[in-house]
Computed example of a mutant assay.
Amino acid sequence: MKMARLTHIDVFWFVPNLIGYSRVALSALAIYGMYYEYPLVAFVSYALSELLDAADGYYARKLGQCSKFGEVLDMVTDRCTTTVLLTYLAQAYKSQALALVFCLLISLDISSHYMQMYSQLITGKTNHKQMDEKAHWVLKAYYTDRRVLFAFCFGNEAFFLLLYLNKFLPAYALYLSIPITLAAFPISLIKNGINFIQLYESACDLARLDAAELNKARSAKKA
């Protein structure tokens, strides 16, 4: 029996994309909770959105519903939610030094992922997580093992989210929260180090492509 051809509307209704829409809704609820001072709403909504980040990829592979739209939806959701949280933290902690750090982390997060996606697609990869034998060993370890990928992404977001929650917890609760926050800090540090490597390696890939194309053009002119 011949299967019906898929349309773009069908792609919108893929299960992993439906999960992606729920992540967007949860992120919006988290932002509302942050700025209207409902910390429990913000914390739970943000945490659920991050947990669902693993579910959309799982169901995309399980159901054969991987899509470029879903990949971009996932990445845009991640970048936007992290940006909003770090922007809030820059205001909440009222420190110029911390605000500068948070702004630099936002810039690193967005630029490294954009350059990685662009360089992978322009060099013929199917998605930004596809690594070949020439890829940096750190990036291969990070992107080829989904457990490692999830652990670092979740740990990084958990560190920032705990920084947010600590602003509202009573003193007795901080005795538990602060050690967990400190435990998550090295994970966040490594994750942002990976972002830096990703940015540099992607820049090198694009520059190599530029050099190859310019050399080819120069050779054609001489011929």
Results as ranks from 00 to 15, higher is better:
R218N: 09
I190Q: 05
F43W: 15
A183C: 09
A158R: 06
K68T: 14
M3V: 12
K222L: 12
C153T: 05
A183R: 04
F14P: 06
T7E: 02
S188P: 01
F43Y: 15
L209D: 07
S202G: 08
L199V: 06
L176H: 09
Q96I: 13
L51T: 00
Q65R: 02
R5Q: 14
Q91N: 10
A4F: 05
A171M: 11
I180F: 13
L98C: 05
A211N: 07
K94P: 02
A99Y: 10
Y88H: 08
A211C: 08
A171L: 13
L52M: 12
S22H: 03
R61D: 10
T87E: 08
I31M: 04
T81M: 14
S49P: 04
I187F: 06
L100I: 05
K191L: 06
K94S: 15
Q130A: 04
G124H: 10
M115R: 07
R5E: 15
L169G: 11
K216L: 08
N192C: 06
L169D: 09
F185I: 03
L199F: 15
L174A: 00
L121A: 06
T123G: 11
L18C: 07
P170M: 08
E213K: 12
S27I: 11
Y38V: 04
T181F: 04
V24C: 08
